[in-house]
Write a protein that binds this DNA or RNA. Structure first.
Lengths: 329, 329
DNA sequence: ATGAAAGCGCTAACAA
DNA sequence: TTGTTAGCGCTTTCAT
């Protein structure tokens, strides 16, 4: 692998001149420039990012800390973050936490400034005292605790409210919610939106219809739905806090020979690709994942450039995509 | 951020001694060791990986080049590769190619030895002359062209044959295949397995029943299935070259009010999580993704240690998971 | 406009 | 056993 020095020797100039050409700096005598460019070409020179970053005091990487790539929402998001990061010449380092406190602590601990320039965090279990980050960071989703860190996300209360109002507009009156969680910020807000929508329609709130989920996988949704269907008076609609829960819930409904949406209307959250092709297809709250990814990366870039700027809280848009699980096709 | 020198000064020893302690080298006088460890603790020292790797001539990263993270198979695989890489103290850099030749070329071009120590490639469009890699690499899947590079994958012919034999054992006689592709190695092999199974059962092979798919997304499967159902004599079973195609095909079947598996049996390939919860759940060929990820990373590690070893071709196991799309639950 | 040289933080060859 | 030091490849003063 050719180094700057090799190129300099070949071109008969100093490394400084070559460096100037490579980085597009200042004025270089046309003649020298030409010679350098030829040498660059001849050697196939490619800068050693490690060395450059060591010198510049940056790493060229940002971390993306998320629960699991096998969760479609995070996989899609990760792809978008990678694309967005390329525009700032950042490479993305993905760390999986598997949604555990230990996993999140381990990920954060490995995030020294020598490894990454900044970090995008999607924590599920993190406590406030863990946020001793040494690099600029942005939170995706919600603050589970009150911590001084920028955030990018949607208005979860409004989104949940929109979803539940849709169910109410369909004439449903026993509307369940799946996904309550002891310490996830998003869960609390979506529950709040659910309650708000019910109250606005003067529908009673019943704790029985709110089913917790310790994880947000398909299996959890299936289990939650079973418990709902075992009730003396099962719900006629269910709002799930993510699409995976909804897919699981629909699976249970199918196993019990319930018609969706006839007997049970189902709304999810996240708008996974998968939900477009399920049978029935799933009505879902669709955050603009591209906007989230871009906003997070841009925010981080701003912060790395000027670390003393005020914290930001970026709200990205969402929409409700109505499909067969609430309105028969 | 504390450096080795800071620690050395605090402990009253030389950097060498600190380095020895940090790296677990040779013998260090117990007294010094204690002092160093205290200083390490006090300063919260964390090695600068960039500097270490610059010195060691390695980067601490491997690249994972794949089409798209939004494809569940690759998302799951990526998660497993990240986990496997951790055991060798490697971080994983994910590059998306979006399945295009340009994307794959761009990804490969960015893979200098200064960026990554090795690369895992999952190409779809790559031509032979593009394989001018400067780092050890391993191919996931199949050689589309005859190129000297190690490979990890399953026996695609045998896997496809197993899938189709299963359909035949169910008494199906008009078995279609979705996913033929002009230059994907896996497609060719799965098609071969399909033909072999038909031949073994003395079933006629009909080109009409083989539908190409330019991409392997759900939409492509849905479209392919529509074309099959528009035939005068539609198939009674279909073998899809991946689960997404199968999910799309089942969606089309549902839209046409066909019963699966009654009117149409469906088999997929990859065993996505999604396929366990679809209605009906999907019978699928299940590669051992964990084994693939581990084998690829281990192979790369071996190769980085001893670059002159012979190329390897690692075959990982697979199984057929029978679910409702072929055998009613 | 360009060259010489220091130094980013680390490891390892060489000395002691 | 430990210290001194060169140098990985690069950027960037400071001279010139």
């Amino acid at each position: 692998m050719a180094t700057l020095k090799d190129v300099a020797r070949l071109a008969g100039v100093s490394v400084k001149t070559v460096s100037n050409v490579v980085n597009g700096y200042s004025f270089v005598k046309p003649d020298n420039r030409r010679r350098v460019e030829e040498a660059l070409e001849a050697t196939g020179y490619r800068p050693n990012l490690g060395a450059r970053n060591l010198r510049r005091g940056r790493t060229g990487f940002i971390a993306l800390v998320l629960p699991e790539l096998s969760i479609p929402y995070f996989a899609e998001l990760a792809g978008l973050v990678i694309t967005a990061a390329q525009e700032h010449e950042w490479n993305v380092l993905i760390e999986q936490t598997f949604g555990t406190l230990a996993g999140e602590r381990a990920a954060l601990a490995s995030l020294g400034p020598h490894l990454v320039d900044a970090a995008i965090l999607s924590p599920e279990a993190l406590l406030v005292d863990d946020f001793q980050l040494s690099v600029p960071a942005v939170l995706l989703g919600e603050h589970a605790v009150d911590v001084p860190i920028s955030r990018v996300g949607i208005d979860n209360v409004a989104a949940a409210r929109t979803a539940v109002r849709h169910l109410i507009s369909l004439g449903r009156t026993r509307i369940a919610a799946i996904g309550a969680h002891p310490h996830r910020g998003t869960a609390a807000l979506r529950l709040e939106g659910y309650r708000t929508a019910l109250a606005e329609a003067s529908l009673p709130f019943s704790g029985d219809l709110v089913v917790p989920a310790l994880n947000y996988h398909r299996a959890d949704g299936a289990a939650a739905m079973r418990s709902l269907l075992d009730m003396p008076t099962p719900p006629d609609a269910v709002f799930c806090f993510n699409d995976l829960l909804a897919i699981g819930a629909m699976r249970t409904a199918a196993e019990r020979s319930l018609r969706v949406p006839g007997d049970l209307a189902v709304v999810g959250f996240d708008n996974n690709e998968e939900s477009v092709y399920s049978s029935p297809s799933l009505t879902s709250v669709a955050p603009d994942k591209g906007a989230i990814a871009r906003a997070a990366v841009d925010l981080l870039h701003r912060r790395v450039e000027s670390p003393d700027d005020a914290l930001e809280d970026v709200e990205t848009p969402f929409s409700l995509l109505v499909r067969e699980s609430t309105v028969a096709g």
